[in-house]
Design a protein around this nucleic acid. Structure first.
Lengths: 198, 198
DNA sequence: TCTCCAAGTGAATATACGTTCACATGATAT
DNA sequence: ATATCATGTGAACGTATATTCACTTGGAGA
């Protein structure tokens, strides 16, 4: 009725973002074409004007997530010059990203994403690998720098870095947001960084 | 036809274990009542003789997982007296458990588990909490013992401990089992333990 | 050996969801 | 002002899957 017509480029963005929001609120189960369409003010069928199917929506979502992860990396590289500070900042940004957007862990952990279309698993792997590579670059710089011990593989450190947040994020989620991720991350980072610099 | 009749106690076990196996092979999607029943040699409807519905099956599965986690803890406490050794053993056992039983991470990370029935989220939280408490007990002993630095919260350490494996497990899974979890865990443990003892 | 109830069967039902299609409409370019 | 095409609509279809129910059957105990 009163639904204004918007071009596909705009709609695709709206829809991908609505998908993230929906998942954040209702979980993967909540991501139904009908709900998704309604959320951007359309009916089911209209969604197919902009995406060939649900698969394409999922792909678009993954791209969005990749963008946000990389945006965080770029931001912290701008904000500070010292690797250890950059990492700490990144940790906090990552937590904020997850808190504001619960869709992120839910998508990464869910197989609905790639159970139908195995290539999407590779896509997700690439997104995470790219993030890890960037994180490990920061570690490398710290090692050249002398602020981080050089006897350890930076890629291992990068994966450990993710490990500072991940289980905490799950506990936060399972505990109905009672578990304090930020506090945990601060303490864990303290211990980790302590070990790094010696 | 040639399906022998077994008592409910037996069937419940068979079914819960079949559920874990199914998820390990096909993912959460693969856990359909029909497939599950067929796997233990029954038809759909027969399953309802032993469970009131899918929900009950999920509950039974969670209990099974809890048991296996706790079994690992008990085993390592038997095998060694020194906390650091126990932890290392537990790490390796945990990895083995996950490798042999991909269902574990898939279930923990999936919300299908509790999206329908929120109390199940609490149940899962309790299972993990229980495991964490046991792990943190080991850390505590190490601290009393003098082999682990005392200026850190053992519960934080326990969560970090999980973080040594978790992201690696995901990478392993996303990379079609190419990423070497065991190798990562060994390196990561080296770094972590190094930080612990100083 | 007979009886009876727990355990197993097959068909039917209900629901939820992705997708398609013939038709309507509004913005834009001429 | 009008034509055109991208965008939006409503209804219908197909499929997958959990659940129910009237029934059969096998085996343990009287």
């Amino acid at each position: 009725m009163a639904t204004e017509k918007l071009d596909t480029a705009t709609r695709r963005e709206q829809i991908a973002e609505a998908a993230l929001a929906l998942i954040s609120e209702k979980g993967m189960q909540g991501l139904a074409i009908a709900s998704l369409a309604r959320r951007v003010g359309l009916v089911n069928s209209a969604l197919y004007r902009h995406f060939n199917g649900k698969d394409e929506v999922l792909d678009a979502m993954l791209d969005l997530i990749g963008d946000r992860l990389m945006a965080n990396v770029k931001a912290v590289r701008r904000e500070s010059a010292r690797p250890l500070d950059q990492l700490r900042q990144l940790l906090m940004r990552h937590i904020r990203l997850i808190r504001e957007n619960q869709a992120l862990p839910r998508i990464v952990f869910s197989e609905e994403i790639y159970s139908g279309k195995p290539e999407r698993r590779t896509k997700l792997f690439n997104i995470i690998s790219r993030y890890l590579t960037n994180v490990s670059d920061i570690f490398s710089e710290g090692q050249k720098n002398g602020t981080i011990r050089s006897d350890t593989d930076p890629l291992v450190l990068a994966v450990m870095f993710l490990g500072l947040i991940q289980p905490a994020a799950i506990l936060w989620h399972l505990s109905n947001n009672k578990f304090d991720v930020t506090k945990h991350a601060e303490k864990a980072w303290g211990i980790f960084a302590d070990g790094l610099s010696r």
